[in-house]
């Protein structure tokens, strides 16, 4: 990963964002549902963010396991960066999900399957951020353990939410496969845009973690040479 890649990715994401927003409102057709209508447009952002939430969490989980086994800081940096970015995308998923629910069913929260899964996963990520902050010098190990267990738990959350009949099920928001082609194109464009954005964010977060470490090492070398005493 190089420094130069980040602005390029971010620029591409910015262009993608402008293009998607334009296409969402001019090119993608309105749904025929009389209630949803215009509100359906949030779908392009909601689902794209949900994809990134799961992707970033999986990256975090894998890196955490590798970090635990090797204790190489670079994996820890990557795990931390993807967890924070995943938590951010997760917050957007939940917020847009609530807006969707308000528009479609006139309540702020529904226990829709994918929304519930996102919520449970997001709880793991919030736990991760809390542990990072409050666990002192054991934070990296503990957080890595939480991420590893949380990621392994995703299939269980999936089957649990699928089989549990505790919450009245609301209808699912559109599924990509059943979309008309124009919608599909805009949808995947949006996914690509947010993928670029997600990667750019993770990379810059990794960069800052690395810079922090380098600064510390330089300071240590200064201390060893007796500079600051």
């Amino acid at each position: 990963m190089s420094n130069k890649g980040i602005p390029v990715l971010a620029a591409l994401a910015a262009i993608g964002f402008v293009v998607t927003i334009y296409l969402v409102f001019t090119y993608a057709p309105l749904v025929e549902d009389p209630v949803l209508m215009f509100n359906q447009k949030i779908f392009y952002y909601h689902v794209a963010h949900a994809f990134m939430l799961f992707l970033a969490t999986a990256v975090c989980g894998v890196c955490s396991l590798v970090f635990l086994k090797t204790r190489k800081p670079k994996y820890d940096d990557l795990a931390l960066a993807s967890a924070e970015v995943a938590a951010m995308f997760g917050a957007v998923v939940l917020a847009t999900g609530m807006i969707w629910a308000k528009a479609a069913w006139d309540i702020w929260w529904v226990w829709e399957k994918r929304l519930t899964m996102s919520l449970l996963l997001w709880l793991v990520l919030v736990g991760y951020v809390l542990v990072r902050r409050f666990a002192g010098s054991s934070a990296d190990r503990l957080a890595a353990g939480l991420a590893a267990f949380g990621t392994v738990g995703i299939p269980f959350i999936y089957f649990m939410v699928d089989a549990s009949d505790h919450h009245p099920k609301a209808g699912a928001g559109g599924v990509a496969a059943t979309l008309p082609p124009e919608m599909k194109l805009v949808f995947w464009l949006s996914v690509l845009t947010f993928l670029l954005w997600c990667v750019a964010l993770v990379m810059s977060r990794v960069q800052s973690a690395r810079a922090e470490r380098e600064l510390r090492e330089i300071r240590e070398r200064g201390l060893d040479a007796g500079l600051f005493t």
């Binding site: 709880l123 793991v124 736990g127 809390l130 542990v131 409050f134 666990a135 267990f149 949380g150 649990m160």
Partner: peptide
Amino acid sequence: LLPVILYPILI
């Protein structure tokens, strides 16, 4: 921190 870590995993 114990419940903060445990409960999301144990849900």
